[in-house]
Design a protein around this nucleic acid. Structure first.
Lengths: 107, 107
DNA sequence: TTCCTATTTGACATTTTAACCAAATATTCT
DNA sequence: AGAATATTTGGTTAAAATGTCAAATAGGAA
């Protein structure tokens, strides 16, 4: 694998990695409904404000969300809604995994 | 966030996480062309056989690939080709990130 | 200016991942 | 059975991700 391919893969993996956390997936799905400020997300997630803030910064660095400060609050929204397309596929993988396990259990 | 949502998100994150590594993304893209045995992948990736094998087992546990032993070799192939749809979106995120950085640099 | 609120950042402890080597397993060939 | 090959598994170690607390920053109100 040449250096160029390697570099490209690392950039791409960085973006997928940004999504690869339950809390961050929740945030993305929530932002699909519209923008939310950090405190709203904190409330729904039920974690430390600093924890939520860091998750948001991971998503922002990856270019998945963008932020917008208005007054005291910072509002976040999806920058690349195409990400939402991932969830259908994942749902499908989960379903197939379940079916496979059922089939195995049956023998 | 209720326990059910939490559990569902963890399962989903596990699948995305399985994809979130340069080597594993390479494997998925390579398998898009057709099945490959471990030694072929090892050759292309240029890492230890055991390293490649472990990456494959991560993908397999997630339900992204399936394997098929024939003789001495084990062949892997995509189990959920819908995963390939991710790459276009990621490519798009990368492109937009680049444009944004350009715009910032220009001022 | 001083206080209050929303958010980010830094430091630290803990957990999870990743890579390599060596050893174990499984299959074919002689 | 014994040798050779392909793959997986276990042990170990280094690196990265996560969460929490405390402190810093920034905007708005008194």
């Amino acid at each position: 694998m040449d250096a160029h391919t390697q570099a490209r893969l690392e950039v791409h993996a960085q973006i997928i990695k940004a999504l690869a956390h339950p809390t961050r997936m929740f945030i993305v799905q929530e932002l699909a409904q519209g923008e939310r400020c950090v405190c709203e997300l904190r409330e729904m997630i039920g974690a430390d404000m600093s924890t939520v803030s860091k998750h948001l910064s991971v998503l922002k660095n990856a270019g998945i969300v963008e932020d917008d400060k208005r007054g005291l609050q910072v509002f976040y929204r999806l920058q690349c809604p195409c990400i939402l397309g991932f969830f259908d596929c994942i749902e499908n993988v989960v379903k197939e995994n379940a079916e496979r396990r059922m089939a195995l259990a049956r023998g």
